[in-house]
Design a protein around this nucleic acid. Sequence first.
DNA 1: GCGCCGATATGCCGTTCGGCATAGACGCGC
DNA 2: GCGCGTCTATGCCGAACGGCATATCGGCGC
Lengths: 211, 211
Amino acid sequence: MSPAEPIRILCVDDHPLVRKGIASILANEADMRLVAEAGGGKEAVELFRQHHPDVTLMDLRMPGVDGIEATRIIRQESPDAKIIALTSYDGDQDIYRALEAGVLGYLLKEMVHTEVLRAIRTVHAGKRLMPPEVAERLSEYFPQVVLTPREVEVLECVAQGLANKEIADRLGTASGTIKMHIQNILGKLGAADRTHAVTIALQRGILHLNS
Amino acid sequence: MSPAEPIRILCVDDHPLVRKGIASILANEADMRLVAEAGGGKEAVELFRQHHPDVTLMDLRMPGVDGIEATRIIRQESPDAKIIALTSYDGDQDIYRALEAGVLGYLLKEMVHTEVLRAIRTVHAGKRLMPPEVAERLSEYFPQVVLTPREVEVLECVAQGLANKEIADRLGTASGTIKMHIQNILGKLGAADRTHAVTIALQRGILHLNS
DNA sequence: GCGCCGATATGCCGTTCGGCATAGACGCGC
DNA sequence: GCGCGTCTATGCCGAACGGCATATCGGCGC
């Protein structure tokens, strides 16, 4: 392509093994250069400020500051930042939140390395990138229900095994109101009961196991 | 070490990126050679039969035949197989099940590549390997409660939002019996209610989101 | 053989949950 | 201003859940 000016890349993932894998893939490409690696969201923001890479590969699920939050911060400071989401998990919700945060591409770790290279070149060329698998999930998503922030809050409490009354005390409202929210949640998710609602929310990425 | 006879290694992981990462790490080591890569448990068993590697790096969480099942099959056919579990997730239960299936070492993907190399050499030398992080979780585990197969079965139904009566029909028993099992489950897990029991079981790796 | 434990089953009782209807207060956009 | 959606709140009712006690049956180990 243009060996004179290689694409400068920042790689963000909490698993050293995955970073190493990406590094080795990039090492064989003449038109790409890995300029930095970050193991977390906080580190990612700092390294982006230092290096201003052309393309950033960003894992979404990370302990501490996650990839979506890091993407949001980076895009706020540098609106022209080209960030590709990279995730091993398939919670539908992640796709939407990542797009909202400003990623230009979305990759699954299930994909082979040639796809990764193609994604980097596509995004660097200024285009967006949506692999078929992701596009399919996105279409599944759009007619999808969205829980209100309050409902998510309630559902988190439900997941912790709290009774309606306890949730009401924690959120500073009445138990009847909580019951109402749960009614709406069950309807939106098509769940049979509160337990089912929690598992569905976990599968869709609306809730996460770590609180 | 002994360049004449490198350690022959089979790598099993459903993420091509991770396999690539491991491959690149091994490529720099004179005493190791990657003889095959598998993307699933079924493939892993076949490739083991073909190559009889000295050491196998096995991801535990995989779609289809998972790493634990593959380990069990391989160890049954070749009791001297040296298999190292490699997982990104930290559900406590996985550790125990993997050890039971016959792994000699347990690695987390959070670890750096030097740890992986050390693990391979250690296990190849015939020794077991338990990193401090894993040993710690193991000690947390031992005084841990164990759900009976029946209880796990019941809990899976609970996670799907089934009522006691529905579970009873599915498992061919009476609803009172199911209630009894749930009582025991709540007690063992220290859960406040059935919903809490499900989230705790998911965190500990007793249950999984894909059914 | 005896004991232990898991699985089975039945009963009772108070609490909670799920379903439904209704309705006021607030913020946002047309 | 008006409508829409969210969050709030209240009430009633039947069904399900959670807590506890009790008991039989079968397998496993000592």
